[in-house]
Amino acid sequence: MSQTEPRPAVRRVAVVGAGTIGASWTAWFLSRGLEVVASDPSPGAPDLIRRMVEGAWPILQGLGATADADPARWRFEADPVAAVAGCDFVQESAPERYEVKRPLLRAITAALPPEVVVASSSSGLLASRLSEECTHPERVVIGHPFNPPHLIPLVEVVGGATASAEAVRAAVAFYRAVGKRPITLNKEVPGHLANRLQAALWREAVHMVAEGVASVADVDAAISEGPGLRWALMGPHTTMHLAGGEGGMESFMRHLMPAVTSWWPSLGNPEVTPELQAKLIAGVAEANGGAGTQELARRRDAALARLLAARASSAG
């Protein structure tokens, strides 16, 4: 396909790798009126997809599923090569290891026409390494969602050193068309962008616990009851812009930036010893009253749906 010839509209998506992330992607794509062909080597994958779609569907309807959305419009193919046949876009969500993803991507790209974009949900691997043995590596990109993909709008699109600008544009256009908020990274780095920001914050959170500055519960509250509420509305740069008052970022740089940068040398780089791991594990259990991960995820998803609805109603 030439650089100027338009790509066909995406109507059928292959979700290759149908664990938690892939099943969540499936629910979202179905809610946008797409047909999905899912594939995974696990015999329990079809049941996981079914439970994910059924559980998420009421929330997705509340968030504005399209009129042609059908929760039953998916089928399962254990063979990934058979799954991608006739699909217009591939969302790969296999385990986060080069030795798993690379042969899988090699097999599916060999079976696809060159215009079909293959996006990996990888949370930190490099697109250029994933595509090394692929047929038409220029159409392999990172399309990294934030968990759970059926609720969080963000998708990081990374082409790296090998993907074409056309493939990156096509991936961004696809994600935007299905209601996501894609961002594009100009160069590839391990962990991409959002996970690196998240890792930097958590490193300091772990340091604060390790140094006995605060408990796990209070460290979490320092974010969820403070800046985390603002970050749900705007990012760190715009937040600091407002912190500068009427003078905005210029005023912040002049009056507040010297104080902020004076803290940077004391930021921590903790050694995560077995003792610190045990302290964090016990602290998380105490902070959440012993609630299990499934219950916490249920609470999170319900709250996320309300937050997304509130943001949509107040968008100006």
Rank of each mutant, 00 (worst) to 15 (best):
G22T: 07
S24W: 07
T26L: 12
A27W: 13
W28L: 12
W28K: 03
F29P: 02
S31A: 15
R32S: 13
R32E: 09
G33M: 01
L34A: 08
E35F: 00
E35I: 01
V37C: 11
A38Q: 04
A38W: 11
D40T: 08
D40V: 04
P41N: 06
S42C: 04
P43E: 14
G44S: 14
G44E: 13
P46C: 04
L48Y: 00
R50Y: 04
R50T: 15
R50W: 05
V53S: 03
G55D: 07
A56I: 10
W57S: 07
W57E: 07
I59P: 00
I59W: 10
I59V: 11
G62F: 03
L63E: 09
L63I: 13
G64A: 09
G64P: 03
A65C: 09
A65D: 10
T66V: 15
T66G: 05
T66Y: 03
A69C: 09
P71F: 00
A72P: 00
W74K: 08
W74R: 12
W74E: 09
W74Q: 12
R75T: 14
F76M: 08
F76S: 10
E77L: 02
A78I: 07
D79T: 10
P80V: 01
V81G: 01
V81S: 02
A85V: 00
C87P: 06
D88R: 06
F89H: 13
Q91S: 09
A94G: 10
A94Q: 02
A94K: 02
R97Y: 12
Y98A: 05
K101S: 01
L104H: 02
A107D: 11
I108H: 02
T109E: 02
T109S: 13
T109W: 01
P113A: 09
E115R: 09
E115N: 11
V117F: 03
A119F: 09
S120I: 03
S121K: 04
S121W: 11
S122T: 14
L125P: 12
L126K: 12
